[in-house]
């Protein structure tokens, strides 16, 4: 095991996949400026700075993906994806289906989001659920360093368009990554902590919030299981249901706003498929239905906190 940061994990994944497959290229605003080692290793043809125009970056990535390349497009901050929405949703997500399967779109779109840098709502907006709702796309949002590496490598190898969301709060986090080839399959959740009384289901930075809460709950005699979804589409329904059937209680925790967020879908799945196992209502802890503020205390307050998870879990277990 080696300790590296999320940034380094992303660099490693890119370098390894670009070495493995000459069709992989990286494009985006400043990727060649910031990732010198990749430029040195693979040259300017495969590590391309682009004009500041997210729509054409994504459109070019989609067209290239359909005709033989495997682009990774760094679109910087998630709200900028609004400019790339047509290319990601209408082209990459739909043209395989509409062409009767004639084309596939093996591309990865990377974007950062979440509280941590006080950048406000035009640079911080957890819009992952928009893409979960769009057919033909896959969506991942890792919560630990090893997953950043393993999921990015899997995303680059996937033959479908993958939205790869990077939680800003984790960019400089360090953690262990297994040595050598390390892949995390898309579509598999991870049980971060095993428990019997309640399931805390989360992804990205709030997984650590749930782990904190679970430690506190253990001191109070409540055994909480923590599920890290890792992939939001396709959702690992089997892992969610197995956990809830075991514990009979669930709290879903995410930073994204509440209404029609990923938590709503998970609550619906649990209600549809594990209703008889439930001992208490399924609850959600999320960001408010408001734009993310820049002011540090407000920005932090946007994110569900461990104390709230503990309170909610205690209420459900009472």
């Amino acid at each position: 095991m080696a300790q590296i940061t999320v940034q380094e994990a992303i660099d490693q994944a890119l370098a390894e996949e670009m070495t493995r497959d000459p069709r992989v290229l990286l494009m985006g605003e400043g990727v060649a400026t910031k990732r010198h080692a990749l430029v040195e290793a693979f040259g300017g043809e495969r590590v391309r700075n682009t004009p500041l125009a997210e729509g054409i970056i994504a459109g070019t990535a989609a067209g290239a993906a359909a005709t033989g390349l495997r682009p990774v497009a760094d679109l910087l901050f998630a709200p900028f994806l609004c400019y790339a929405m047509d290319e990601l949703v209408n082209s990459a997500g739909k043209l395989r289906y509409l062409s009767g399967g004639q084309f596939s779109f093996p591309l990865v779109a990377i974007a950062m989001t979440g509280a941590g840098w006080c950048v406000g709502a035009q640079h911080n907006h957890n819009i992952e659920a928009w893409f979960v709702h769009s057919p033909g796309l896959k969506v991942v949002m890792p919560g630990c360093v090893a997953d950043f590496k393993g999921l990015l490598k899997a995303a680059i190898r996937d033959d479908n368009p993958v939205l790869f969301f990077v939680d800003i709060g984790l960019v400089f986090a360090a953690g262990d990554v297994p040595e050598g080839e390390y892949l995390v399959p898309i579509g598999e959740a991870a049980v971060r902590r095993s428990g019997q009384d309640i399931s805390l289901i989360s992804y990205a930075k709030t997984v650590a919030v749930c782990e904190d809460a679970a430690r506190t709950l253990a001191e109070q005699g409540i055994s909480a299981e923590v599920i890290d979804l890792r992939t939001l589409k396709p959702l690992d329904e089997a892992s969610i249901l197995a956990s809830v059937r075991k514990t009979g209680r669930a709290v879903i925790v995410h930073e994204a706003s509440r209404t029609c967020g990923v938590g709503a879908e998970i609550a619906a799945i649990v209600a549809e498929k594990a209703f008889t196992a439930l001992k208490a209502p399924v609850l959600r802890l999320s960001g408010p239905d408001a734009p993310a503020p820049a002011s540090f205390p407000l920005e932090q307050a946007f994110v569900p906190q461990a104390a709230a998870v503990v309170d909610t879990a205690r209420r459900l277990c009472a």
Partner: peptide
């Protein structure tokens, strides 16, 4: 038009 740029890049 955007897709054409990608096909051209390929």
């Amino acid at each position: 038009l955007g897709l054409a740029c990608g096909v051209g890049l390929s």
